[in-house]
Design a protein around this nucleic acid. Structure first.
Lengths: 328, 328
DNA sequence: TCTGATTATGAAAACGATTTCATGAATTCG
DNA sequence: CGAATTCATGAAATCGTTTTCATAATCAGA
């Protein structure tokens, strides 16, 4: 493996000059530049990134936290982020927290040990105070999730509005008995706000809610099946159900269909995210502009890294859109 | 940011001894060990990974190539790989090649510049000769795809068998006019073999194939819609269709349903992968043991890195399973 | 008690780049 | 023409570890 020293020797110049050529610094004559370039080619030389990282004190790498990459919402987020990062010369390290507090904390060492320049969080399990001390090691940007106490840039959607929009749609369609089926992480601001928006919409319309129409811890298609089962066994059943994701909505729709129910006549269903799945199952859903939040979060991160000082609190808030299909 | 030097000073010892404690080398008295540990804690010290990488000449990082992380087959693969890697103390860098030759080549620099210890390829766009020269910089393991000329370990499934299994099932159900709808990368061994298995099954049953029943470049749900459109406009329509993925199958099923066709009476459909989507749409499908191939590929990679010499050609082949549902 | 191993420690040399500093040559300016 | 810039280059310091080598102290065996 050739080093910069070998190149220098071959070109009959110093390491310094070779380094200047590599990094496109001024004050090198065309003549020497040519010599160096040629020597590099002949030796098949490429600078060793570990050495460069050490000297430069930066890694050109960013860690992205997601709960699970198989969740289509998060894989979409990551897809866009990786593209954007590659465009700017950064790489992505994938950190799956698996909805576990401890797993999430483990990955924080990446920042502290200088394996990455910064952290993008798309979901938050721990209290913000766990992250706070790590800010001195590099920038942290929050995307999708948000926390009031976090003194960092956040790119997110106002989930109160999102769920209000969806719930209002159900109400406008004439439903008055509406169920609520979502995941429900205590520490997740997204969860909390979705519920607030939901209740607000009911309240504004003067509609009552029943405790037994709340179904929690629903994340997957399977969970949707289970939710439908519980729902269908109630004496007083809801006419419509608001869900936290298209997967759950799809699960409910499928289970309902299998049980011989008609959607939306026997049960109206609204999803969240507008995944390809939603189109497939003809689900009405609330669309989130994933591409935009992913891009903006990545841009803020790169900006923070290059500015070399932590960005202060900053919120970037984007709108939702209702996609109406035949499930409502 | 505290360095090992600071710790040494605080503990009244040398860098060497501190390093020994960190790396759990023998020949350090309990007494000094305690001193060092305490100093490290007080200074909130963590070893700088760039320096360690440089000295150790290894990165504890592995690059994984996928076409797109939003493709559920690949996100599943990556999910399992990341888990397995984390277990062994390695991180994953995500490389999306976007089915582009050039993009794929670009990422090869990661290995050459020593940003990663090894490469796992889950899809291959370029000819193997493009990868060959990089073998001197670190191990490469192939997972899912395979290439006859590649002198590296490959964990893959015999796609001839897989598509034979699926096609045979259609034939056993009594269909004789069978369409074929898949992606079709010239350089992909998977594509080629699937087609071979398909044709073989037809041939073994003495069934004829029509050129107009082949539909190529189908990867997504959308592509499934398009394929159905073309199919439905034929004078002589197939009774069943073999697809290369559950997404495509789901797209066809949905389009067929919307057009008022009954599945499987008017058109039988078989998918591939057994994604959650397949259960949802009640699609018969050929299941691939994704968890197993992902784990085995990662284990081979870690083994190769730790053995410090490139592993030779080695094939690990695993079986398929037919999941029958109501679409056939 | 002497010899040879074993245990415990530190000084200094890597690892491979970039950056600072020094210096001489060439150019511009008054 | 001499002084002040600007241009071009290289020697050496630096980034923060780990590893090699040297050395002293302790221990075991004859």
């Amino acid at each position: 493996m050739a080093t910069i020293q070998d190149v220098a020797k071959k070109a009959g110049l110093s390491r310094t000059t070779v380094s200047r050529v590599i990094n496109e610094h001024p004050y090198v004559t065309e003549e020497k530049k040519r010599l160096v370039t040629q020597a590099m080619q002949e030796l098949n030389y490429v600078p060793n990134s570990s050495a460069r990282r050490l000297r430069r004190q930066q890694t050109e790498t960013i860690a992205v936290y997601v709960p699970r990459i198989t969740n289509p919402f998060f894989s979409h987020l990551v897809e866009v982020m990786e593209k954007e990062a590659a465009k700017k010369g950064y790489q992505l390290i994938l950190c799956q927290t698996r909805y576990k507090k401890e797993q999430e904390r483990n990955f924080l060492e990446l920042l502290k040990t200088k394996q990455v320049d910064g952290l993008i969080l798309t979901s938050i399990e721990n209290d913000w105070s766990e992250f706070e001390p790590y800010l001195s090691f590099g920038p942290i940007v929050v995307c999708n999730e948000y926390s009031d106490s976090a003194q960092v840039p956040s790119v997110y959607l106002n989930q109160i509005e999102g769920s209000y929009l969806g719930t209002k749609h159900l109400i406008d369609q004439g439903y008055t008995k509406i169920g609520y089926c979502t995941g429900n992480h205590k520490s997740s601001r997204v969860s909390k706000d979705r519920k607030i928006g939901f209740l607000q919409a009911l309240d504004d319309a003067g509609i009552m809610m029943k405790e037994e129409w709340f179904f929690y811890n629903a994340y997957s298609v399977q969970d949707g099946f289970a939710a439908f089962k519980k729902l269908s066994e109630l004496d007083d059943k809801p006419q419509a159900v608001f869900t936290g994701s298209d997967e759950v909505a799809a699960g409910i729709a499928k289970a309902a269909f299998d049980a011989g129910w008609r959607v939306p006549d026997d049960l109206a269903i609204i999803g969240f995210d507008n995944q390809p799945l939603a189109a497939l199952m003809d689900l009405t859903t609330v669309e989130q502009p994933i591409d935009t939040i992913a891009k903006q979060a990545m841009n803020l991160m790169v900006e923070a890294i290059q500015a070399k000082k932590p960005l202060s609190r900053k919120e970037v808030i984007l709108p939702f859109q209702l996609i109406q299909r035949s499930s409502t």
